[in-house]
Amino acid sequence: MNIQFRAPHLLACLAIALPLAASANAILDGYQAETKGTFSAAAGEKLYNTVGPKQLSCSSCHTSSPKNVGKHAKTNKAIDPMAPSVNPKRFSDSAQVEKWFKRNCNDALGRVCTTQEKGDFVSYMLSVK
């Protein structure tokens, strides 16, 4: 059998493969490798709305939808949207992501977040379209 790769076929293959490649996230893959478990976008959404001991949640500054521009609770500074669907820079730099998880889990929840929670959270962010 003689298979010929013709341009229309290749394009069709790319059209299928590209969205798959775009939904993969290296940071999420890293958490996955660490926990070996599965992540839940629903659990991530719950975490996003959890109010901690200082009466703060993620949504206090990032608003009820991660697609919105947020506002720093103390300084009023505008915060770029967190959902990668509207702000592709998000969840692309591991050092940035870890820096903000460290700070904001502490501020909002009064503790560090587990790798499972981070995976759930990123799954939720990636699911917001």
């Binding site: 103390k74 820096k99 460290k102 700070r103 904001n104 502490n106 501020d107």
Partner: peptide, 12 residues
């Protein structure tokens, strides 16, 4: 910086 005016602003 970890206690920066009531906010955790820690850096590497």
């Amino acid at each position: 910086l970890d206690k920066h005016f009531g906010t955790d602003a820690s850096l590497s």
